[in-house]
Structures are given as structure tokens and as C-alpha cells.
Design a protein around this nucleic acid. Structure first.
Lengths: 252, 252
DNA sequence: ACGATACATGCAGAAACGTGCAAGAACAGG
DNA sequence: CCTGTTCTTGCACGTTTCTGCATGTATCGT
């Protein structure tokens, strides 16, 4: 059995049965559990399944979204979001990325702040509906289900027509050499397009992302104004970033 | 049964029944009460449920509401939405307007329907995230807070670049002479732009809108394929519309 | 106040996990 | 055809996580 064939088999299984039990699949196909686990790990990295103890489950944006809406935002993200929200001046124009941290920023914006928010996330646009003074501009395009944001050519094109004072970007990896990274190429391109349209770009990264890198680069450090994080300011990685000239905004 | 699966099961149970009794679940799934209690403890820690003696309850009434909102949708809109959802063929391209009735349509679409939905409503885009087979295309633009949809020049321009088989339009007034009307000029223009991009246009209108007119005209009857409503087919206004050549799809 | 039930905690066996390693297959270049 | 490289795969190992049970404590209903 070819590796790619196995991969398809797993995805089909996931679609048909709604779950994968590593042990059963290994026994069924006559291969080792290690291979199954490796495949699942890869699929999960690509956002095609959700890895859980014992196997995998389908990525369920509904559940994620549902959980994100109801769950108390983790403390770290909350702190980062508060600091980020403080960067937005009255009357300012903000480009806000998608993702849970950015959503926390949207919620952290003062309810009566008169500003303009440009976003490619329908979730964030919806969250800002109860900010009566905020002008919301939505960037359209094909919705990328994994992270629930508009991506692709149309979205990038739409982004070309806006300009902003500040861009707040969420990423999955923050690494001194690799720069800012994320797990999907389309998303990386979109974030790049957003950052290019703002005078200043600040990155939102809770501490667990510091020192890690994902597959696709978003931006090098030269194009980033600063990093907003709850990580220890004396952390080795943070110190390295400071040496690179990155402004560090501590959230704690 | 996977641990994560069990967790989902608990959340689903919570949403559907509004409560969880640890003992019953343990017996039902054939696992120890300890495991159930541990899961509930974890879920509570994440803010996804409220732990109580003997089991758990939803964190807030809003949670049950979220799952049950489908049912909570006024009956009339629900019926209209069901009929409308039935018009969408597998593989079809649908333009879906904003508004509560259209939202009901989005929810009424079969979860595994492979179709493309084009919308200018971030709310509807978000609601469609849990339709894994649906391709979502979001039309961007300035968000009109009143109805939470993208409107204005940018949105109309974005609409020019798409084409669809079917357009489902919500309106506030349905009148034999006035045609379809709504309360805002920008919205009316946007709806017009959407209808122009689809081969067929059907209007969603629960009975209370029949025979009324708002300030701004959306479309004349000549450009509408049909009307989906729960109003009595023998209603005087409905009869008039039939005479005008409007196809009436009764929802009851 | 009492018994019954639910609970948290610690513990131990089992299962799943990640990692390093080596054997083998696939492949490119000479 | 041979050789070196890369990638895949299964195995072994130590580690982490899960689960059910036992224990003692807290809470509930009567």
C-alpha cells in the first residue's frame, strides 16, 4: 500500500465514520500503529483532521467556533489582546487578522471606540457588530474553513484597496531565524498582503508560540514593528528578537 | 470509544437535553463514573459546562439556545427556510442574502450538501462553517450594522464578479404594485446587484410581510422567479401575485 | 442527624505516545 | 550497473496519558 493511498484511506474513513482509531486502522491495513500515527500527525499538521488520544476526529469548525465563542478566552490571549487593543487610537484604522487571539482583540476594543476595523474574518466582523462606533470593512473572498477567514486571489486583491495605520497579525510560529510562520500557504500570503497595507505591523503571540516555527513564512522581522506577547521578557528567544530590533510589548 | 469522542458526546448531550447526569451517561456508554466526572471537570475548567452535584449544566442558557436556536427560529421562517433549502441542488451555486430568514436557510441546508454559497453576510458565512462540503465565498465591503451585511460600492463591485444558479433574497415588503421593498437604499441596491448575478431569483417572505411595502424598491416582479412564503395560497395578495406570473412556493 | 450518594485523590496497570535507530525501498547521478 | 542519498517503515525504548479501583471526604435528601 502506497503512503498516499493510506492517507486517502484515512481521510475517507474520517469522512465516513466520523472518527479514526489508530489501533483498528493499523490492524485493518496490516501496518504498524506507528505509521498510522505518523500519517495522522501529518494530516493534523495540514489541518485535515484533529489529532486526539487514540486516533483522530474530523476538524469541526463548528465545534471549534462554538468552543471559542463560549470558552473563557485563555488568560494569556486575553492579556495579549488587552495590550493590542490599547494600541488602537480613536479614529484610527486597524487591520485585524483572523484567529482566536484576534477575536479576543476585537472583544477587548472599548465598546464606544470610534475606529475603522478592516478584517477578512467573518467571525470578527460579527463580533464587532456590537461596537456602535466602529466602522467595519470586510474583505471578501473564498472562505478557508480551517481558520474561517477569506483567503485566495480575491481576498488579496480586496486587500490591495485598503490602507491602515496599524495591522494586528496572529501567527502560529514566532522564531528568531524563521521569522513569523503559519501552517498554510494561502493564509501566509493573505497575512503578508494585510501587513503590506498598514503603516505598522504588530504581531500577537501568546507565549506557547514563541520559539516555534510552522511550515510557511509570513514575514521576516524587518517588516514587523513589534511583538505583543505574554512571554517572559528575559526569555532567551525574546532577547534574541530584541537584538534584531523588534519592539517587545509585554503583556502581564 | 475515544476520549475526545466522549467529550464531544457530553457537549452534544448538554446542548440537546440541557443537562448531564454523570451516572446515566456512565451507564449509557459503559464506562466508569470516574471518567465521566473527570471529563466534566475538564469541560468545566474550559468554561464549556457548569459542574453541579450529580452532573453538569450548560454554562449559560445561551448555550442550549445556540443548539436549539434552529427550533427557536419562528415557525414561519423555519418553514420558508426549509422549502428554500430544498431548491438548492447538489453542486449548485447559491447567492444567499443576509437577514434572519436567510440565516435560517443556511442552517436548513443539509450538512453534507456539496454546493457553493455566495453571501455578503458574515453571520451567514460563519453559520456555514460547519457545512464541510459547502464552498463559501464572501462578498466584502463596508458592513451595514443595521442588518449586518456588506453593502456599498465595494460590495456591489465584488458581486459583479460572481455568477450563480439561484439567488435567495430576503425583503421587508412584498406588495403587488410596489414590488419587493426594503428599508434602506444601500441594502436595496445590494440586493438588486445580487439578484442580477443569478439565473433565478426567489424571494423569502414570511406571511407578515405579504402586502406591505417599505421605502426602497429592490426589484419589480418581472425580475423575480418566485416567492417562497408560508402565507395562505388563497390570500388576496398572493392571488394577485399569481396573476402577475409570480411562481408561489407554499411553505406549510 | 443519618444513610446514601457523589466527590477528589492517590495509585497501578494498560494503552498510547514520541524519539532514535536500523533495515529496506526509491531515486538520482555517475 | 553501481553507489550514495533520501525517504519510508517497523521496532525498541522510555515517557506520558488514560482509566478503573480503593480510600476517605463532602454533600444531599430525609
Amino acid at each position: 500500500m502506497l503512503a498516499a493511498e493510506r492517507r486517502d484511506h484515512l481521510l475517507a474513513l474520517l469522512a465516513n465514520e466520523g472518527k479514526i482509531v489508530a489501533k483498528d486502522v493499523a490492524a485493518g491495513l496490516g501496518i504498524s500503529e506507528d505509521s498510522v500515527r505518523r500519517d495522522l500527525r501529518d494530516l493534523a499538521a495540514e489541518g485535515l483532521c484533529q489529532r486526539v488520544y487514540g486516533g483522530a476526529l474530523p476538524v469541526s469548525p463548528a465545534v471549534v467556533d462554538y468552543a471559542a465563542r463560549q470558552a473563557v478566552t485563555p488568560d494569556a490571549k486575553q492579556k495579549v489582546a488587552s495590550v493590542a487593543a490599547g494600541l488602537v487610537p480613536p479614529g484610527g484604522v486597524l487591520i485585524l487578522d483572523g484567529g482566536t487571539t484576534a477575536l479576543a482583540v476585537a472583544r477587548a476594543l472599548p465598546k464606544d471606540l470610534a475606529c475603522t476595523v478592516i478584517t477578512h474574518s467573518p467571525t470578527i466582523a460579527a463580533a464587532l457588530l456590537d461596537h456602535p462606533q466602529a466602522e467595519i470593512f470586510l474583505l471578501g473572498g473564498r472562505i478557508f474553513k480551517h481558520s474561517a477567514v477569506a483567503c485566495g486571489a480575491a481576498a488579496v486583491e480586496a486587500a490591495q484597496n485598503v490602507s491602515a495605520d496599524l495591522c494586528l497579525l496572529g501567527v502560529t510560529g514566532v522564531h528568531p531565524e524563521a521569522g513569523l510562520t503559519t501552517g498554510d500557504a494561502e493564509e501566509a500570503a493573505m497575512k503578508r498582503a494585510l501587513a503590506a497595507r498598514a503603516a505598522e505591523t504588530y504581531v500577537l503571540a501568546s507565549s506557547e508560540k514563541i520559539g516555534t516555527a510552522s511550515r510557511f513564512r509570513v514575514l521576516p522581522w524587518a517588516e514587523v514593528s513589534g511583538l505583543i506577547t505574554d512571554a517572559d521578557p528575559h526569555d532567551a528567544v525574546i532577547e534574541q528578537l530584541k537584538a534584531l530590533g523588534v519592539e517587545i510589548l509585554a503583556a502581564d
